[in-house]
Amino acid sequence: MNVIRSEWTKFRSLRSSVYTALLTVAIAVGMGMLISSGQARGYLEATPEERASFDPTNLSLGACFYLAQLAIGVLGVLSVTSEYATGMIRTSLAFVPRRGMFLAAKAVVYGGAAFVLGQVAAFAAYFSGQAMLAEGGAPHTSLGDPFVLRAVAGTGLWLTGVALIGVALGVLLRATAGAFAVLVAVTLVLPLVAGLLPEWFGRWWPTMAGLSVTNVVPNPDLLGPWQGMGLYWSCVAALLGVALAVLRRRDV
């Protein structure tokens, strides 16, 4: 508990935490509205097949998992790499020699912050995005519709995982630039180029599988929402486990 309180103080005492949090929500809402408005126009010109796969819920959340995730990922990465960059890590681990405890406290605090932030961003993006779709004359949903609430809350949960991947990569790579580059590759670049890769890749790549839950109109190419979530979180947990093993063994 002491270590969690300590990490929470570290989190809240940096301006960058506040800026990152505000940026996350601003991107989720701002870019989300732009995407929704653009897609609403696209819907009006779409073919019937395209209209059949039109998923207003998923569209309104797109800015969360394409863009806002970068801000949340940075939060997770920096929670660890800023300690390495400044040398603070030595002081931190001298005060908390139990490294498992140290990493667990980081995961709880930064994962917890990302969870709250992710939910706020997802719900804000959803509501503002649906408003834009409605305004543009495209189909839109409400939270009471089947699977919509699951999709929105699932987005927030997925963002939590991104922050934790950031924490783990921060421990493994220690440098901000390296950890962030890998994070972007894993959560953004590979999913974007998945169309060029064999079909199984998009189905089994963990960060893509974890997003299956955000589809209200089922996408047959992806794993089911629960299997996808399970695969995603197993991988997040495994990555944290590897990070812990490395942190325990390594000299600081």
Binding site: N2, V3, R5, S6, E7, T9, K10, S13, L14, R15, S16, S82, E83, T86, G87, M88, R90, T91, S92, A94, F95, V96
Partner: peptide
């Protein structure tokens, strides 16, 4: 060990508070 090993964005009080709480 190294006096420079402090996050530049954190105040002296919060730096010490985080360490104290741990």
């Amino acid at each position: 060990l190294d006096a420079r090993a402090v996050h530049p964005g954190r105040t002296a009080f919060h730096h010490l508070l985080a360490l104290a709480q741990s």
